[in-house]
Design a protein around this nucleic acid. Structure first.
Length: 493
RNA sequence: GCCCCCAUCGUCUAGUGGCCCAGGACGAAGCCCUCUCAAGGCUUAAACCGGGAUUCGAAUUCCCGUGGGGGCACCA
């Protein structure tokens, strides 16, 4: 499709945890850049000093790397258009603000926050739309210069035309027309000398030669402002794509703190930093978030490579999407099954180790085919396979009693099982299973009862990977020992 | 209140005027497989927000409602 290499950017502000929405925009940015042979850039929008939280920037970089969305240019990797942190680009914004003032597209404003607030209150009382009243809009230039010389603090406001309408073009939504009188004279440079988003993003996107701006639809209302600023500079516009927002699972309203907390209780999260701990894979998270806002007709299980091949901005959807965590589970489980054994082993080892288990790599490699299709999240490996790495297991006594049998009968089954096992030179499952089948036939007990007792005795749990394959991996000695222990438990009941 | 955006199964979506009594996926239900739990296979239920208009013909175009979302800061 696109022949021209695209330069895209993810431009988060370091004001909190990196969330799903950021990850999804970053993914689309990444896909477009890779598909066209362009670059994907990380820019930190930290112009609000009051809201910047320590560590947030690092969390963003870690999050992108964990997801595998490595940026070509960014604060910690450099690049030809740096710096990539807006607080380090102060001079650039001041310079550009001055250009706008000189061209008559912006003006200094000496109104104090108190005054502004008072005006706002009065407007609301009169049921008017809150907006800047224009006090400083027509201040004589020499009067403004005098005040500045006297050390009066000022902001710079963009001078929106009062007449006519602005037509801004969004790639997904078409032309968006707004009456200019609806627009405000927004502050573009604050008294602290730092720009607001409106100036900073526009200047940076131009300076960094960004060709496609993908961002949340919350920017739609100031979209005409941004377009006006670009036109005031006389610059070429990027292609704009305003993505939809994520709604909470109920579909009623956007994700809130409350919803985020609820998700956490259910074992899910909207924060990228939590995903690994919860056992999610980058592949699963990416595939899942990609499809909220991107319409794919069929074959929706995709690796990033496949996404790159298939991605087009034309197939993005403009409507809001409700988050569906069940679908995350599905994509996560599916991608786990797609992983190679060696890859899965490396990832699973982390969880076993965190659980305090001593991992035998040989056993790990052998048990993975047994548990792979049983995993929804990576940390499920603990509940399915921890017994492989424990010295002893501790079955619940009642679980050793098979359904329909009493303790005495169960003990009898266990003793017989021990005899059968003891008679086996090795525990290959092909060799081991037939004698047990014969026992089931001759004893009158059913397979569920016999295998159930054996399962609980040997694995310590009622639910496990396939029994005989598991025993083969555990080895004869371990199985015999555990079975002996279970017999003891049953005989005491 | 004002402005802007959005609208197909419960959810994510395909669909760009006839190929659609609307396709896929998740979830749900049932069956098969089966040593537990999964995975897998097969099957079923499930949607074009409402009303006008354009047209031989509309899920698809236009208008009006309604509903949902976003914004109205010296925050991004």
């Amino acid at each position: 499709m696109s022949i021209k290499p695209a330069r895209t950017r993810i431009a988060p502000s370091p004001t909190g945890h990196m969330h799903l929405g950021t990850a999804r925009v970053a993914l689309y940015d990444y896909l477009l850049a890779k598909k066209t042979g362009g670059q994907f850039i990380l820019r930190i929008e930290d112009t609000d000093l009051k809201r910047t939280v320590p560590g947030a920037e690092q969390e963003i970089m870690d999050g992108l790397r964990w997801l595998g969305l490595q940026y070509d240019e960014g604060p910690d990797v450099g690049g030809p258009h740096g710096p990539y942190r807006q607080t380090e680009r102060r001079d650039i914004y001041q310079h550009h603000a001055k250009i706008l003032v000189d061209k008559g597209h912006a003006y200094p404003c000496f109104c104090t926050p108190d005054h502004l607030e008072k005006v706002r209150q009065e407007q609301m009382k009169r049921k008017e739309n809150p907006h800047y009243d224009g006090t400083c809009r027509n201040l004589a230039p020499d009067e403004a210069a005098k005040r500045i010389a006297n050390g009066k603090a000022c902001t710079i406001r963009f001078k929106m035309p009062h007449e006519g309408a602005t037509v801004a073009h969004d790639h997904l939504r078409g032309d968006i027309t707004t009456e200019n009188k609806q627009l405000n004279d927004y502050v573009i440079l604050k008294t602290d000398g730092l720009p607001t988003y409106h100036l900073a993003a526009i200047v940076d996107d131009h300076e960094m030669e960004i060709t496609h701006v993908m961002r949340g639809s919350e920017w739609l209302s100031t979209f005409p402002l941004h377009v006006n600023i670009i036109r005031a500079f006389g610059w070429e516009e990027p292609t704009w794509v305003h993505l939809s927002v994520f709604l909470k699972p109920s579909g009623k309203g956007k994700m809130s703190k409350r919803e985020a907390a609820q998700a956490m209780k259910d074992g899910y999260s909207i924060f990228i930093k939590d995903m690994q701990d919860l056992g999610f894979t980058p592949e699963g998270v990416l595939n899942w978030s990609a499809l909220m806002g991107w319409g794919v007709a069929e074959d929706d299980v995709m690796t990033v490579g496949q996404m790159v091949e298939r991605f087009t901005i034309a197939s993005l959807t403009p409507s809001p999407a409700a988050i569906n965590f069940q679908k995350l589970d599905h994509f996560n489980a599916t991608h786990i099954r797609l992983l190679t054994t060696a890859d899965l082993a490396a990832r699973l080892k982390h969880y076993f180790t965190c659980e305090g288990l001593n991992v035998n790599d040989d056993v790990l490699l052998k048990m993975i085919p047994l548990i792979r299709e049983r995993l929804t999240t990576l940390d499920d490996c603990i509940s399915f396979g921890a017994f492989f790495f424990k010295d002893e297991v501790a079955p619940v006594a009642e679980d050793l009693i098979a359904k329909g049998l009493d303790a005495k009968q169960s003990a009898e089954v266990a003793r017989k099982a021990y005899q059968i096992l003891e008679a086996q030179p090795d525990l290959s499952h092909e060799r081991c299973e037939p004698p047990f089948r014969e026992y089931v036939e001759s004893s009158g007990f059913n397979a569920g009862q016999v295998f159930g007792i054996l399962r609980v005795a040997v694995t310590g749990q009622k639910v496990s990977p396939p029994l005989f394959e598991s025993m083969e991996i555990m080895g004869r000695d371990v199985c015999l020992r555990r079975l002996q222990h279970a017999i003891g438990m049953l005989e005491k009941m």
